[in-house]
Nucleic acid binder design. Sequence first.
RNA 1: GCGCCCGUAGCUCAGUGGAUAGAGCGUCCGCCUCCGGAGCGGAAGGUCGAAGGUUCGAAUCCUUCCGGGCGCGCCA
Length: 561
Amino acid sequence: MTDATIASPLQRLRTVLDDAVLNVTGGERPRSAPSLERPKQAAHGDFATNAAMLLPKIVGAAPPMIAERLTVALQEHLGDALREVEVAGPGFLNLRLSDAWLDAALADVVAAGERFGAAGVAVPEAIHLEYVSNNPTGPVHIGGARGAAFGSGLANLLDFHGHRVHREYYVNDFGNQVALFGASLQARARGEEPPEEGYQGSYVADVAAEIPDAATRPVDEVAVAGIALMVARQKASLERFRTTFDRWFSERSLHQPRDPAEGSAEPRPSEVDEAFGVLAEQGRSFEQDGALWLRTTESGDDKDRVMRRADGRPTYFASDVAYHYDKRVRGFDRVIDVLGADHHGYIHRLKAAFVALGGDEDRIEILITQFVNLFEDGERAKMSKRAGEFVALDELVDDIGVDAARWYLLARSHDTTIDLDLAEAREQSQENPVYYVQYAHARIRSILQRAADGEVTGAREGDDEADASTAIVDGERELLLALLAWPDEVAEAADRRAPHRIATYALALARQYSAFYRDCPVLAAGVPDEVRARRLDLCRATAAVLAAALGILGVDAPERM
RNA sequence: GCGCCCGUAGCUCAGUGGAUAGAGCGUCCGCCUCCGGAGCGGAAGGUCGAAGGUUCGAAUCCUUCCGGGCGCGCCA
């Protein structure tokens, strides 16, 4: 079975519902697709739909009346699979499915294994995803940590959903900050203080010590060597944080002439110059006061932006323009930039550049991650007091661990500020949500291992009084319904660029499993074989979905803890 | 002043048109003859910042206002 042929049980049910709707309307579709979701209350059935309430204008009848007609249509389509339908409230249709349907659905889930819920996207895209992009003149700081958690989580999520994701880090290795970094390194190598506006962090001396002859070499060579070392350090920090990239894109490369095209001896102009040429051709740029400007106001910016100063030096924005030119030329279906909150003012100008260079406005998304405030027992935390440094990603990971750090940074929507209490994430780690989910996974794996070893535990008190019925009980049903929601959760989270939804879902599923674990013995003697088989399947499916969810979040799914 | 984000339980946060608004932590009361107690059950706790509006229906959409964060360079 390939990914493309994995149709989720719920998806098939939705198709039936759509058919029923078309039957009732005579072929016309409602403006918005009918919902098909688990109702909040168990009394409202396995699934509920608002379909009847979307159709009054089309059908010319009141929702309850339409619901009755939908009921008939659904009964025709589903037959015995449908155990019960009721019209409730303002026109909701509450569906209850038969054991046979549920068993078949479970079989589908188990067959799909860890790929259940994967590759569900209707139109896969090649997506360029840029995230973190810290300056290479210091360690990855807490803002970068959030960008890393969100960016890598989003990349994993989009990938799981069926897109092709290219992960990229933009290295700002160009401009006067690089020169300043070089000067700071050389000063440290000579045992001097860095320049007034230079880099003061303690890491500067460490890096300087790794550069041969740093005290005497030309300062620009020191700068280049220093940047290379810093990038390597960032790479190591990020890999430890389970955040990787397909490419580390050099800003400097945008300013350098490129190798000749095939069959030519002439070097090609830099991408900056080429982008400038395209913009001039398109009439998107203009010269004023000797400077070269881009008309970013056409994309909602509050003023136009300079790309090249009167003295010929490019601005930082020139690099952005060329970088987005490069992204566009590389031929992705979509470009997503993940930026920190302090860059939200750049949204318009980046979109303007992308569009001016021939990109489609709907093909670029700029996502802003909000700030992270660290607390320690309710007080503002001061982790790194070394001058000139923000709290480093490494320190955070040393303190609370990769799994907790990723969970806390990824379990919340990217556009809300996070107040992270380190004492809570660290000292109460035993009761941390992330460990709760991991525990559920480890516990299931343990049961599955025992089952594989042929273990049967003693009958539990009360078990022998139970009849030998093989009907699906509430604990099984609720867990299965939670599992069936997984593909929808993935689709929703991916479409909304909201990996935090995966964390919310994983926690809810782990809770649901706990209820099942409490009420439904798997290995106990006296459990009918058919029931044990079903419960083992539920265990297998839950473990697979938890592992997939944790995998998206970049959190370990341990076999034992 | 203008722009972006946020305002939901004591705290941290889910919930972007559906039925009685949820979780974790914290607090209180219970549960280890039982597949992993890193667990389970229960309780208390909410004018969803405020006021209008749209709708059969609003935490969710619109308007205004009030709080908080961030940004408004020919710096990078």
